[in-house]
Simulated assay, not measured.
Amino acid sequence: MSADGEQEQRTIRCLVAKVGLDGHDRGAHVIARAFRDAGFEVIYSGLHKSPDEIVQAAVQEDVDVLGISILSGAHNTLVPKIMDGLREYEADEDTLVIVGGIVPEDDREGLKEAGVAEIFGPGATMDETIEFVRENVHERE
C-alpha cells in the first residue's frame, strides 16, 4: 500500500519471444518497446528459439505474460508445443499467452483451445494489445 492508502500496482513482467526459424523480428521489437513504454518489464528472447527454450525462459523469469511473435506459418506446430511445456511446469494458469503475427482465421480457434488468450494480427494497435494485457493478466500475490 502507498502512503495515501491506495494499492500499488505491480509491474507486469513480459517475455516477447520469437519461435522457430522466423527471422522477421521488427514486430517483436515494436511490441517490446510499446510494452516498456507502458511500464511493463520486458525480456526479449532473441531470434530462432525453440519452444523448449521459450518455456524455460518464461518459467525461469517468472513472467506474467508470454508474447509469441510468429510469421513463419508454423504456429499450429510451435505454439501448442509451448503451451504443453508451460503445462508441464504448471505455469499455464499463471501466464497470459498472446500471439502476434500472421495467423489465418481458420487456425485461431485451435490455438485458443490450446490455451492462447488472444491473437493479434496485422492492424492490431499497440494500445489494444496493452489494454488486453492489463485487463487479462493474472493478479499475483
Rank of each mutant, 00 (worst) to 15 (best):
36 R>L: 06
26 R>G: 02
23 G>A: 02
60 Q>I: 01
104 P>A: 04
139 E>M: 08
8 E>G: 12
128 E>I: 11
140 R>Q: 09
89 Y>W: 15
31 I>F: 10
60 Q>Y: 03
136 N>P: 07
49 K>C: 09
4 D>T: 10
24 H>N: 01
37 D>M: 01
23 G>K: 05
97 V>S: 09
53 E>M: 06
51 P>E: 06
137 V>I: 06
133 V>I: 01
7 Q>G: 11
49 K>A: 11
103 V>F: 12
35 F>H: 01
40 F>W: 00
100 G>W: 10
40 F>K: 09
39 G>M: 01
95 T>A: 09
6 E>L: 14
57 A>T: 14
52 D>W: 11
47 L>V: 03
34 A>T: 05
74 A>E: 12
94 D>V: 05
102 I>H: 13
64 D>H: 07
68 I>E: 03
131 E>R: 04
105 E>Q: 15
129 T>N: 09
105 E>T: 15
95 T>M: 00
112 K>V: 10
7 Q>F: 13
53 E>F: 00
25 D>R: 09
22 D>C: 02
43 I>Q: 07
129 T>R: 01
4 D>Q: 07
55 V>K: 08
79 V>P: 10
71 L>S: 12
119 I>D: 04
57 A>K: 14
59 V>C: 00
20 G>E: 00
51 P>A: 00
128 E>H: 12
114 A>V: 13
103 V>E: 10
74 A>C: 05
35 F>E: 01
72 S>Y: 07
86 L>P: 10
26 R>S: 06
65 V>L: 02
76 N>M: 14
56 Q>C: 12
83 M>R: 09
137 V>P: 05
29 H>A: 13
73 G>E: 06
74 A>F: 13
73 G>Y: 14
136 N>Q: 05
116 V>W: 12
55 V>G: 09
113 E>C: 10
48 H>Y: 15
82 I>R: 10
22 D>P: 05
14 C>A: 03
57 A>D: 14
77 T>F: 13
